[in-house]
Design a protein around this nucleic acid. Structure first.
Lengths: 192, 192
DNA sequence: AAGAAAATAGACAGATCTGTATATTTTGTG
DNA sequence: CACAAAATATACAGATCTGTCTATTTTCTT
């Protein structure tokens, strides 16, 4: 088995366990041994699948990025065809997320916080997620008729990230509602 | 010397060195020994002034909170008496901060990220700063004639935190400008 | 100058960290 | 069954972590 294999039961199980612990306690706070103990997997199995803890973290972040955006866009699709409703569906999705049992903020913001040097591979991987989300928002803003879709998407990104951090620290879902109201106002301004 | 003493040259020097390293590399990433080596201070001196690394971190966060808000309010004061200009001065202050040499985001957001459990003393201390800033923003929003100053201040808080994270990851000051424009729009809406 | 307070060096404990090496056992496949 | 791949247990290296202890020296105050 090579370290470049993209999937296997053991690898998936390892990533699932690591994800849970990393998200709950933090990337630096969780050691390899803790993950291995919790997963019931031998250390060499981890190092046969991943070159290092750093590569494990990066693999997890990339997986979460896909899952996150897939889930978000599914909610957008379920909102129908009205462009405004599709954009605002993003905030409904946030509300559900904030209310979920194990919600502990945004792992990407947290990764950027834990690896503050912008050149660090983990920092860069985490930020690529934010760029991807902003691109999706830009599409939604453009479809909704925003004159400057890029600018509105950036503003909504700020709003969303701020709401996530507040929802995390306060353990409430209300920030999603507040942000939704503001988003609706900003969209109206941007299309006027 | 007791561990409750609030100030002394050694204590101040220790806190200044620790602050620099913590902010640059992260709270968990920097060990006590690194701080002591950089500061040129004996280990027992640290433990005579602080009960633990955690208490050192908390003391630093509380000090930074005061310095941060003092600096911010000084810029507000320098903006004169016009309530709108005073509120928007917050974003000018942000722009200066984002452009500063060693800018690495918001240590309070990063502390909340590194200690994700909301009951953790470090998490709580960091969040108290955000609450204090929001209170100051609420005053500025009220003075500027916002109908719901609390709601506007919360929205601006989201905007600010999001802009900080983006400025950090992208190493640019532009988010301050974007946020300023949006803040002006939202204030107009809130006073109409 | 004398006594008290503060800071020092340095060793140490005991745990934890990432990553490696090796030899054995399990698993899957032909 | 036989062979190869995968996973295992275990030990280990070497560094690092927070925090304690002790004995000595420096600094401050009176």
């Amino acid at each position: 088995m090579s370290a470049t294999a993209q999937s296997s039961p053991k690898r998936d199980h390892l990533m699932a366990t690591a994800w849970r612990l990393f998200y709950r306690d933090g990337l630096r706070a969780v050691g390899i041994d803790t993950i291995l103990g919790e997963a019931g997997v031998a250390k060499m199995t981890l190092y046969n699948h991943f070159a290092s803890k750093e590569e494990l973290i990066i693999a997890i972040l990339e997986k979460r990025d896909l899952e996150f955006r897939t889930s978000l866009m599914a909610q957008v699709e379920s909102a129908g065809t009205d462009p405004e409703q599709r954009l605002l569906a993003v905030f409904d999705w946030l509300e559900g997320w904030f209310g979920s049992e194990s919600f502990k903020g945004c792992v990407f913001i947290r990764a950027v916080s834990e690896y503050p040097e912008p050149t660090h591979p983990i920092h860069q991987t985490a930020w690529r997620h934010k760029i991807a989300v902003k691109a999706a928002l830009t599409d939604l803003c453009g479809a909704a008729g925003a004159k400057d879709a890029v600018a509105l998407a950036e503003t909504l990104s700020f709003l969303i990230d701020g709401a996530i951090v507040t929802a995390h620290a306060t353990q409430t879902t209300a920030p999603a509602r507040s942000a939704r109201v503001t988003a609706a106002q900003l969209l109206k301004l941007a299309t006027a």
